[in-house]
Design a protein around this nucleic acid. Structure first.
Lengths: 229, 229
DNA sequence: GGACTTTCTTGTCATATGGCAAGAGGAGTT
DNA sequence: AACTCCTCTTGCCATATGACAAGAAAGTCC
């Protein structure tokens, strides 16, 4: 667990702590020392829509840069403009908003294979209202806005792919919204367990609770009820 | 009010009733008999992002077809694939989903200048879970999927515009989701009044209630409380 | 105009969930 | 091992909202 070591910066100074900030005297963990073949492997799966031509992938894949985050690192901070997005190769990530009373509300959880992106901020170039934080140590593949724009406007398959991802997120969000109205908390929790079991197992109850729109107290009781069924 | 006349078809036969189905013996209302200059005027405002070049607009605008709907007409039915979208020049539109018990849940309201579209169904080409229905008689400008695709892939400004609309919808949906968690019903209602006052005035209370995630009974009481403040 | 349907209001009572606080159990630190 | 956090559970009571039902009010149709 040598790489769970987290350097402590004064919060105001350095809210975003990336792996680049690690003390260089620590040796890189062996899993990070991989040859190009292996590095590409993960992204190849991501773009495994048959639609992509080989030549296109040869342009696209090298644009992604491997970045790793330590547990609790921020990928994005409230108030900033989202200038990049990531695919997760390993680890869990959470996004959350801050409500008027300062409490945080989980807005999403991400795991292996997911895109971590603040769509509105990334595309509308305005400052985000969300924070994105690593729940565990993570390995990610990063693309920045400018590079994205270039690929988006020059490769038709790439923009179809991007659009489909965005619309997929929209759909998921809408289903959740409807569920907030039609389902009781217990039902919403059951759906979450069904759809994202790894998330439920890896995320503290309180963070799941705000995502579901209940208090941690209630969620604890809900779990108890479900267990006794 | 001559054109609130609505032809009745057996439901199973003809769930979607467009203006084309009207008895041709009715004369068209004068507002529909407009010259080309006027017809283009509305859409010009829609695409009034300075970014568009004149030549581009000359390609884009003629692709939109004017369609009008009568009150209660369906623009889209659950189970179908959304093959077109509309800009509203006049009137109000509601989309709604049907919950497991058969009750309908308003998912959105649209008024002048809005795009009426089921993003997921339109782009992912799968059958929708929503219905879209005219709340009043409407004048709309319609584009179908194939034409959209052509414009999207051939005109960069057009795709930026489309992407911005989609992301804008995503953002609005997300804000609503968060509001469902952080705000009480009264607060959510106040926000709706503030953001879409015309909607609140033109939509029956029950339909507003399902949108806000409360019963019509509760919303009625909420209104009373607010009135007495 | 009168009958009918739909929409909205109001009362009574039930229920899901919140607020608060105390305590149990783990994990990490010294 | 003792200490400190942090997470989770549980009890007690409060409150927002739902369910149901009866009217009132408004709109629609013939």
């Amino acid at each position: 667990m040598y790489w769970a070591i987290s350097l402590l910066f004064p919060i105001g100074d350095m809210l975003i702590r990336r792996s680049e900030n690690r003390d260089p005297s620590y040796s890189q963990p062996p899993t990070l020392q991989r040859n190009i073949m292996n590095e590409k492997h993960f992204l190849t799966n991501i773009f495994n829509d048959q639609q992509f031509k080989k030549e296109e992938l040869e342009i696209i894949l090298p644009k992604y840069k491997k970045v790793d985050f330590l547990k609790n690192d921020f990928l994005l901070n409230e108030g900033k403009v989202a200038n990049q997005y990531w695919f997760i190769e390993k680890g869990f990530v959470r996004s959350f908003a801050t409500d008027p009373e300062g409490k945080d509300i989980s807005t999403n959880f991400y795991s292996v294979g997911d895109v971590v992106i603040d769509w509105p901020s990334f595309f509308l170039r305005n400052s985000t209202r969300e924070n994105i934080q690593a729940l565990t140590d993570c390995i990610c593949w990063q693309l920045d806005f400018e590079t994205f724009q270039h690929l988006f406007h020059s490769i038709e398959t790439f923009r179809e792919h991007g659009r489909a991802r965005l619309v997929g997120s929209y759909f998921a969000l809408k289903q959740n919204s409807i569920s907030m109205i039609t389902d009781q908390a217990k039902e919403r929790y059951k759906k979450l367990v069904k759809e994202k079991p790894q998330i439920v197992q890896n995320v503290p109850l309180k963070q799941l609770a705000t995502y579901l729109g209940v208090t941690d107290t209630s969620l604890s009781r809900i779990r108890k009820e479900i267990a006794s069924e």
